[in-house]
């Protein structure tokens, strides 16, 4: 048993270091405290609601969010707007529906069951409107980037003047956290760009943090349930393991062998 554990832990340590060295990126990302990390990590409701505001008022003009529905905004574990608020948000958007009995498409106010309205008809339209670059869908963006939330958070604050010797083409911007440092998206945030409905001071840092939190939720809407369930599952497994261990000791005590 001792030998077994020793070898096993050696292998795990090796794999862990390999994995982490593999995951380590060359750039150091900006660090901040994320409330959703850790065994009991939960989203900060205020940040999620503010993050939604940043998303709609800033990002949503180019970036779609196609896997989310307005009902999600009122669901547990998310921004937890009241159902009334979520309905009001939904009905503020025009949704294309149809065909009606005349075979025509028509627009109507959004409902809770509707998916988030997309800024462009399709990918080609999005590319055409953005100089050939497709603004990626944001539903799972955080999980689709190696650095995750830290990367997004840093990127939003990483715009700066290009170092001497680097020339940028028209419509290309310099960002120290972007892969290859060249990014087509212009700096989206500036201090006081929006007015938070809860009165929080809208600094670039604050908005970056809020919107990144919001994007973490859109990518992992069941994160809170997952953490809660995980804690219970692991505590349960440990209890059962202990019980089985003593049962095993007792059963094996009938034969003269060490287990």
């Amino acid at each position: 048993m001792k030998n077994f554990l020793r070898i096993l832990s050696l292998i795990i340590v090796f794999l862990a270091t390999t994995l982490s060295s593999h995951a380590a990126e060359k750039v150091e990302y900006l660090k901040t405290d994320w409330s959703f990390k850790g065994l009991f990590g939960k989203f900060d409701r205020g940040a999620l609601q503010r993050g939604y505001q940043v998303y709609t008022e800033v990002c949503a003009s180019c970036h779609s969010m196609k896997y989310l529905s307005y009902r999600n905004l009122a669901e547990k574990g998310g921004p937890e707007f009241t159902e009334q608020q979520a309905k009001a948000i939904a009905s503020s958007f025009d949704v294309t529906d149809g065909p009606n009995s005349d075979g025509e498409m028509f627009t109507r106010p959004g409902k809770l069951s509707d998916k988030f309205v997309m800024p462009y008809e399709n990918v080609k339209a999005a590319q055409a409107a953005n100089g050939g670059a497709y603004p990626p869908d944001m539903s799972v963006l955080v999980k689709a980037r190696g650095g995750g939330v830290d990367y997004i958070y840093s990127l939003l604050q990483g715009y700066e003047d290009p170092p001497v010797g680097i020339t940028l083409d028209e419509g290309v911007h310099y960002n120290r956290y972007m892969y290859g440092n060249k990014i087509k998206m212009s700096n989206p945030l500036s201090d006081g760009l929006i007015e938070y409905s809860d009165g929080t001071n809208a600094t670039v840092e604050q908005m970056s943090k809020d919107v990144t939190t919001f994007l973490m939720w859109t990518a992992e809407p069941h994160l809170e349930t997952r953490h809660q369930m995980g804690f219970k599952a692991i505590v349960y497994l440990i209890i059962l393991t202990i019980l089985v261990y003593f049962s095993m000791k007792r059963i094996w005590s009938r034969v003269e062998t060490e287990v």
């Binding site: 349960y236 497994l237 019980l243 089985v244 049962s247």
Partner: peptide, 16 residues
């Protein structure tokens, strides 16, 4: 004690 141990193990296992 043994019976209790085994019963408890079975019961906890069944819950899982």
């Amino acid at each position: 004690r043994r019976d209790f141990l085994f019963t408890a193990t079975y019961a906890v296992g069944a819950v899982g």
